[in-house]
Amino acid sequence: MKAAVIVFPGSNCDRDAAVALEAALGHPPLMVWHRETVLPDVDLVVVPGGFSYGDYLRCGAMAAQSPVMREVKDKAAGGLPVLGICNGFQILTETGLLPGALIRNAGLKFICRDVHLKVETADSVFTRNYEAGQIVRFPIAHAEGNYFADAATLDRLEGEGLVAFRYATPEGAVTAEANPNGAARNIAGIFNEKRTVLGLMPHPERLADDLLGGTDGKAMFDGLVEALS
């Protein structure tokens, strides 16, 4: 299996994603510069976290217009799995690969801490190594992670089982207290219709190593490698 990590000016979790992928793959992923117009032949694309182009406009808005994202969008339409983490999720919504938008956190501040998530479905290449209903701990680190979509879109996402993760208490209750940023219906991550594209605000790559305090994120990368090899 081959994977690529997209690198924008201002990406800063590109190396973190590459390290987590390499641990699962056994070899490093390809790093693809934002100006590329053709993607290498890969089985997975990761759009990493950071502040693409400084995010001085709406987060991800400029990255969505980059040459490489036009190519990612085309390939994703053909079924290529795409994982967007944090700024990557913002870019995927701006690109139109995922519905909705990520707006300013309800508390108006950047938040960096571990959160608990309820895995909504194991039926995807991203979540196959989790169980539906499982509670996992991933860190968040964002100021604009408040997922927003109109009620009809939210109903459709829920109705079609396209919500991937929700913020929850350590015991698994999906409550307002467990929601760090005001996200609609506690949504932390969503799929596209075919569940081949996942965008999520929390960082699975940050807890994929015992020394860093946990390995709940590792199962996502291991699962991807198993599914796509």
């Binding site: 800063n12 979790c13 190396r15 973190d16 390290v19 987590a20 976290g49 501040k109 950047f110 938040i111 960096c112 801490r113 860190p139 680190a141 960082h203 790559e205 940050r206 190593d209 860093l212």
Partner: peptide
């Protein structure tokens, strides 16, 4: 300190 990203760079 929760307003500071203290984990980036992994």
């Amino acid at each position: 300190y929760e307003q500071y990203d203290h984990m980036v760079m992994n």
